[in-house]
Design a protein around this nucleic acid. Structure first.
Lengths: 226, 226
DNA sequence: CTCATTTCGTTCATATCGTTCGCCACAGCG
DNA sequence: CGCTGTGGCGAACGATATGAACGAAATGAG
């Protein structure tokens, strides 16, 4: 099977470039290009060379879901993966209703996107075998494909990790103690998760010098990715 | 919440009447009417009084998915449940891509339709309360809602399950141990029922940090019954 | 250089989880 | 009546996610 051709739609140039790098790094996927606006995205899609759209919801000239609506109105059935920081339940459900195949919360770990895209590729491959379903269970599996969750190491809880990732995306320069206070755990626990992210290359360790006496604090920041 | 207004689209008059009866029998749902053709369906939908469409794929004047496409093209975002005997994998996936929320194979048992519709009602309720998701796992549950099975699985007793459900409705944040004490079973048994509910998407798992040493407790809460 | 100070980072205790295994009641059967 | 299979349950036992405690490390002050 040839590579799946992906279009990245994202207005922040830094994030856009990061997503492009992510996608190209994945075997089986090629990033066809980047669009920074809804208009530009529709323009590229009109060429009909795109298999999959990585779509941000916040665009300068309109909402991401509007792009999908306009695509569908034009008869374009290209699959869409929402990549966004919109956390409202209504936003997720609206996306589901319009036929978005995956919904990835920003900020995300590289592994998350990788898992979602490979899961999508598997779905798509299965679809091409063109069969007839036997029972309701099979229908359900097709309609609601299982989402593989990236494995968290022993000693760490996935839900806590998600919250830490979310915090890091909010602003730069978190100390373990600040994170601990925000999520309601001890400094030790917060540090465990931060260190995990740093080991994975998803967070960056730096020092904060207050000018006062004593050992400097360690700051953790989300990696925008090279 | 007022009843959800349902439109049945089905060309076979006998089946149509049966579906209408099914829907009206369900608390929380009202059948607004029956349409035997795609044209008639679009006509009724234009009035904007419909919350949910039970849609057959084989209509005398067009395919069911075309009805959905035309609805979307007209800006109509009404939710659609496909009720059809179309068993092609491509049909199911096309339905998923166009944003069909459920896909029920004909012929179906009354219980099947009931479970799908009540599951849908719960999703919808959660969206309307303006909730915000905490982590990626919750997003996945929303995007690919678990299809609830009416049958109680092996190893669980229906009467006990009912009592657990009742407890969860009383207040938020039950641990397995608290539930066990309230219904007079062991923690292990209580946990079995709570896990079942969580797997079905009816309960939510979160962690409770008491600030003390030791592994945190797992809290179970009823989903979005604000 | 030495000390006071502040935070780090590791080790260990601990509370809870989650799974395995066996018990018991009960129903079906000869 | 005994035997057997099955469903529902709980005790027991690692596994695991956490915080307390404490020495180590990094800095500024004198």
């Amino acid at each position: 099977m040839p590579d799946l051709r992906v279009l990245v739609v994202e207005d922040d140039p830094v994030a856009a470039e990061a997503h492009r790098t992510y996608v190209d790094r994945l075997p089986g996927f090629t990033c066809l290009g980047v669009a920074g606006t809804a208009a530009r995205a529709l323009q590229v899609l009109a060429r009909g060379e795109v298999d999959l759209v990585l779509l941000d919801m916040n665009l300068p000239d309109g909402h991401g879901l509007d792009v999908v609506r306009r695509m569908r109105a034009l008869g374009n059935q290209t699959d869409v993966v929402a990549v966004t920081s919109a956390r409202e339940v209504s936003a997720v459900q609206a996306a589901a209703r319009i036929g978005v195949v995956q919904y990835v919360l920003k900020p995300f770990a590289y592994e998350t996107l990788r898992d979602r895209l490979t899961a999508y590729a598997r779905q798509r491959k299965a679809a091409e075998s063109g069969q007839v379903v036997a029972d309701q269970d099979e229908v359900d599996r097709l309609l609601h494909p299982a989402t593989v969750s990236s494995s968290v190491p022993k000693g760490l809880a996935g839900s806590v990790l998600d919250r830490v990732v979310q915090l890091l995306g909010n602003r730069e320069g978190w100390t373990a103690e600040e994170v601990a206070a925000s999520i309601g755990t001890s400094r030790i626990t917060a540090r465990r998760y931060l260190e995990h992210l740093a080991d994975q290359g998803q967070a960056l360790r730096t020092q904060r010098y207050d000018g006062r006496s004593g050992r400097p604090k360690v700051e953790y920041s989300w990696v925008a990715e090279s």
